[in-house]
Amino acid sequence: MRQPHAKNGNLKSLLGLIPATVVMLVFFVGALLLCIVQSLGYAPQYGINQFPTFQYYQAFLHDDGLWNSLGLTFYYAVVPTLIGAALSLFLSVAFAKAFKGRGFALFVYKIPLAVPYLVGVSIVILLFANGGLFARFFYAIGVISSPGDFPRFLQNAEGWGIMMVYLWKQVPFMTMMLYSNLLVLGREEEESALLLGASSLQIFFYVTLPRLMPALVGSTLIIFAFNFGSFEVPFILGAGYPNTLTVEAWRLFDDADYARRPEAMAIVTFVTFVSSLSILAYLVLYRRFERKRGRV
């Protein structure tokens, strides 16, 4: 598409950007700046005015629990993103085909998109707790003899319950993103590959996947970033300690001692920093991969 270039004198045509920019600057950039400023020791409302100091960063960077928490944060973020991406790729390709009940399936899979994560938490508690329905079912058929025999999915560091909730919400999201791209991209390339005698696996790996790559990278990026900074799911379904950095930040922010709040701010700033860095690394790797393949 040919687009006219705004000349310097024609700044008027860019006026439309102002409202969005102002809102984002004040409430988003402003929010992050206040986080950073407070984490550096400027919090006069709590009688703290040591700006600039790195003591609040040092406080948690020196804590031996930090690496544990950081590891868990990455683990809860990366594993469901990978599993979810694989499942969504598979499902989106299936959705592009014709099958009986397709309209129904295309309706139902959107339901998790329409409800908060907390609904997923409720469901996982009901089904996967040690006294939950699956444990009861296995007890009824004699596989386990007490709730303790059922594997522990909730409230421990392994975090299977957390990841189940993420998958429940995010597989539909990623499937939607990928499937919508499939719809727009059309099927001509696949069909010509089919005519040339390619197997369906070959078509998937050599034709479909490369074309879906940008959408896949985009949606995994959003999902990873969300999981990395999410709070309520690990708060309810994780171990009280150790837990993700965000839950740790919550604990400090909620402490009766207001003087600990700058430390909470230091943690969320750190989380933001690590998350952005990871995303940047991901994008750089992806660019390099694309360049190698001769695209871009």
């Binding site: 707790a129 006294g131 444990a135 007490s146 709730p147 409230q155």
Partner: peptide
């Protein structure tokens, strides 16, 4: 170690 009394009560109710 349960995180709070609510989890502790469900451990008790399930006979754990």
């Amino acid at each position: 170690y349960p995180q709070n009394q609510s989890v502790n009560q469900s451990l008790y109710n399930n006979g754990e």
